[in-house]
Design a protein around this nucleic acid. Structure first.
Length: 427
RNA sequence: GGAGAGGUGGCAGAGUGGUCGAAUGCACUGGUCUUGAAAACCAGCAAGGGUUUGUAGCCCUUCGUGGGUUCGAAUCCCACCCUCUCCGCCA
């Protein structure tokens, strides 16, 4: 959520900033509502003030044994006037809130112009593209041939966009997760956290998946429904909900491995082959909570931590800065890591690292105590995949295949595979 | 699932209809004292929002959550949520 105060004071600049995303902010409608809000709020609060002071007067009079009947007479209709004023105020506030919750975040000045993915700016590449003296196949063919990837079974159990993996392949994904967690906790200074996979509405409001993107989420039945987390960003970032952190406890860096659940509504026909886009996938997520002045550095650091994983796995990738049109709803700035997939002869997103400024923390009331002012102020949040385990598995399979259809294990993972160096055909 | 107890400020803990945003203690911050520290003493110390040039002043809201009674609710009534203890069940 954008600061409502800023929304009132600099509506024109905000509209321009959001227009770069292709978002049309109707400032006139907002200003009109805001004018009503102000009048109604002033009126409501002064009525409440009146009520409070007369109640005190009555109390005082009663204590002194005076006749309170005339005083009661004077406040007879106050309650009704207050009720009317309150309900009009609430209606206007609800409309304002609806607009505010629908507004995407302001963008960083460095976000490149552009409408779609094609306009993203490539920042750098790392690694040599692997060369094969045979025609490399994709992970689906590899997995099928090895007898370790079973989309048929997954379809019988759960339908499309699910995967069943067997033996060493299942183990390889676990090895990847374990490796990533070890690097981030032992070398990058993250605290590992175990979090709930089912969360309530307010958590998703906090990180801004709700109210706008409900159709992307799986939801349970019941009076107080749960949502399955689409990313560990939700529970991790909400650790700061309604908290005030001391300055010396920042930055806070958290890492969690969780499964992620996404309905993928609206992506019918996209990435239907293989396990690139699934309803359920494993991810290692990184979250930073920082003082505002440190946010720019934190994004570089966070991205670097995710890059470390790909580098140690020996996977070629590139880093792109998302353009205005491709930027996520709540993001102020995003770097995507795209890994090279020989099976697709293309770079595919494997990590997305975003800075949210105070967009999420305002919704969560996540604060820190600024020593310069002595007051609680909103902290800044960042998150990024470090990295998506399902896609990392795909990348390892495709990049490390040989002409016989075996998959070599990257050196750093061998210890996590009990010494196994190659995955061959199952017998 | 059954029985009981309870949810108040950073923590502990008073408060059962009226000047209560809330006693007291601890913690914390500043000061006095001291060579320094401790102790003692003095003072300060919740959050959100509105108005406003204002981190000044004034005002509103908040005692688990939501409703109700009342001129007035932390306090009374109703519903819900959560925590703890015991019993049952259970990975």
């Amino acid at each position: 959520m954008i600061d409502p105060k800023q929304l009132r004071q600099s509506a024109a600049e905000i509209r321009e900033n959001l227009a770069r995303r292709g978002f049309d902010f109707d400032t006139d409608a907002y200003a009109a509502l805001e004018e009503q809000r102000k009048a109604l709020q002033v009126e409501t609060e002064s009525l409440r003030n009146e009520r409070n002071s007369s109640a005190k007067q009555i109390g005082k009079a009663k204590a002194q044994g005076e006749d309170v009947v005339p005083l009661l007479e004077a406040v007879k209709d106050l309650g009704d006037r207050l009720d009317a004023s309150e309900s009009r105020l609430e209606a206007v506030q609800a409309e304002l809130r609806k607009i505010e919750l629908d507004l995407p975040n302001l963008m960083h000045d460095d976000v490149p112009d552009g409408k779609s993915e094609e306009d993203n700016r490539e920042l750098r590449r790392w690694g040599e593209l692997p060369e094969f003296n045979f025609e490399p196949v994709d992970h689906v063919d590899l997995g099928n041939n090895l007898g370790l990837l079973d989309f048929d079974a997954a379809r019988r159990i759960s339908g499309s966009r699910f995967t069943v993996m067997h033996g060493p392949l299942a183990q390889l994904q676990r090895a990847l997760i374990q490796f990533m967690l070890d690097v981030h906790t032992n070398e990058h200074g993250y605290q590992e956290v175990y979090v709930p996979y089912l969360v309530q509405e307010q958590a998703l409001f906090g990180t801004s998946q709700l109210p706008k993107f409900e159709e992307d989420l799986f939801k349970t039945d019941g009076d107080t429904p749960f949502y399955l987390i689409p990313t560990a960003e939700v529970p991790l970032t909400n650790l700061a909900r309604e908290q005030i952190f001391e300055a010396d406890s920042l930055p806070r860096r958290y890492v969690a491995h969780t499964p992620c659940f996404r309905s993928e509504a609206g992506s019918y026909g996209k990435d239907t082959r293989g396990m690139i886009r699934q309803h359920q996938f494993e991810k290692v997520e990184l979250v930073h909570m920082v003082a505002p002045a440190d946010a720019d550095d934190a994004l570089e650091l966070l991205t670097g931590h995710a890059e470390q994983i790909l580098q140690r796995l020996g996977l070629a990738y590139r880093v792109v800065a998302l353009c205005a049109g491709d930027l996520g709803f709540g993001s102020n700035r995003t770097y995507d890591l795209e890994v090279w997939l020989p099976g697709q002869k293309n770079y595919r997103e494997i990590s997305s690292c975003s800075s949210y400024t105070d967009f999420q923390s305002r919704r969560m009331q996540a604060r820190w105590r600024n020593p310069e002012t002595g007051r609680p102020e909103l902290l800044y949040t960042l998150n990024g995949s470090g990295v998506a385990a399902g896609r990392a598995l795909v990348a390892v399979m495709e990049n490390y295949q040989d002409k016989d259809g075996n998959v070599r294990i990257p050196e750093v993972l061998v210890p996590y595979m009990n010494g196994t160096e190659v995955i061959g055909k199952a017998r």
